[in-house]
Design a protein around this nucleic acid. Structure first.
Lengths: 205, 205
DNA sequence: CGCTTGACCTACCGACCGGTTGGTAGCACA
DNA sequence: TGTGCTACCAACCGGTCGGTAGGTCAAGCG
């Protein structure tokens, strides 16, 4: 069978395989050999397209993790001025995704961003900074929505948007992480019910 | 210099070094060679006392991680019937510990239990079960305190203790994890302020 | 004292790690 | 059709991994 040059497709396949491997085993323990084997390419090809293991991680972060975060958690908040209702919708959507993915999805792997924070933040300064920036972007989106909610009279005026955003983002990441060892969707549901109740307390009186 | 047999001290030194290494680099990426070098012992001694890397992890979990969790988060709740006040005290104590430990402590390493959940839960079934049990114990302690608070009239009767416990434990673990890449104590303080405000909403009217 | 048992050490194993090498094949353009 | 550049490949590198084999030595016991 003849060889065909397809650099874009090659990059995509490698990043996809790397995402699988990093999700399953983490960055530090993830193996380049396993990635190239799963992608059906050689290590030479990997090193031709990416600057080593760290470059591969950054590509995955930029091309898959960050876009998914923005799509699911940041952009839907961009224009809402009733953040309590908006965030409750996002919780329900996330729960639906988790249950749709089944036991091989988030139930087993937890939150990709939280896993990277636990695993890869100490490896490289640039990666640490990028993870910190992603979390900051997430918090900023939540805080901005809460601020708009206050301005629109939908959120209690005493709510401190930045504090609540830090707490909420931490809780969301923590739910995925603490439920991971139990592998039990009912833990997600319980925590999300409480999260929804907490969101209701932020409403204007 | 003559050799002295001190099996108990040897075990202690090895577990301490393993805890350092697993805290800093995680379980999967942590190296037995680094552990024995830091402890000043040989690998033969390590394998004489522990059943390999997994045995070492279990010893660390049982002898350091679990006792610390119980001391800081479980036992202080054992008898309180005003869990809102009790949990707020625990938050303040945790914040004091984080700030006292400085940038080389929890700020850099996050929550040990959450790190293990992200890193080691997929390695071994027994480890996964033990982590799940530890989280369950933590949640149960919080839920029991909330239930006592309801009985004593200190907690709103509509509060669902199990749901709130799952949410609260997730939030606490998540705060340490999401703040790790930022290495900024002010993030802890912001999230803890919001957590305290959330706890107040659980009070009886 | 001799003997036994467990504590501990030196030296080493095969496997796998991330990364590099020198080269060949595809393909746009002359 | 030839030339040059990029895409890609097979083989291999030094180093480190978790783990083991087989020995020496300390110390309690008769």
């Amino acid at each position: 069978m003849p060889r065909v040059n397809d650099p874009a497709g090659m990059r995509r396949r490698i990043v996809a395989a790397a995402g699988e491997e990093f999700s399953r085993r983490g960055y530090r323990a993830g193996s380049l050999n396993a990635i190239v084997a799963a992608a059906g390419v050689t290590k030479g090809a990997l090193f031709h397209h990416f600057a080593g293991k760290l470059g591969l991680l950054e590509a995955w972060l930029d091309q898959e993790v960050a876009p998914a975060l923005r799509q699911h958690w940041i952009e839907p908040l961009a224009a809402v001025d009733d953040p309590v209702a908006g965030l409750r919708r996002l919780l329900e959507a996330e729960l639906a995704r988790v249950e749709a993915a089944g036991p091989e999805g988030a139930l087993r792997h937890g939150c990709r961003l939280a896993n990277l924070a636990a695993d890869a933040a100490g490896v490289d300064e640039a990666v640490r900074a990028r993870l910190a920036a992603l979390y900051a972007e997430w918090r900023a989106a939540v805080a901005a929505a809460l601020a708009r909610g206050k301005a629109a009279g939908n959120v209690h005026p005493q709510v401190v948007a930045d504090d609540e955003a830090a707490f909420l983002v931490a809780a969301l990441a923590g739910i995925a992480t603490t439920a991971k060892p139990a592998r039990d969707a009912s833990l997600w549901r319980a925590a999300f019910r409480a999260a929804a109740a907490y969101l209701d307390t932020l409403r204007a009186p």
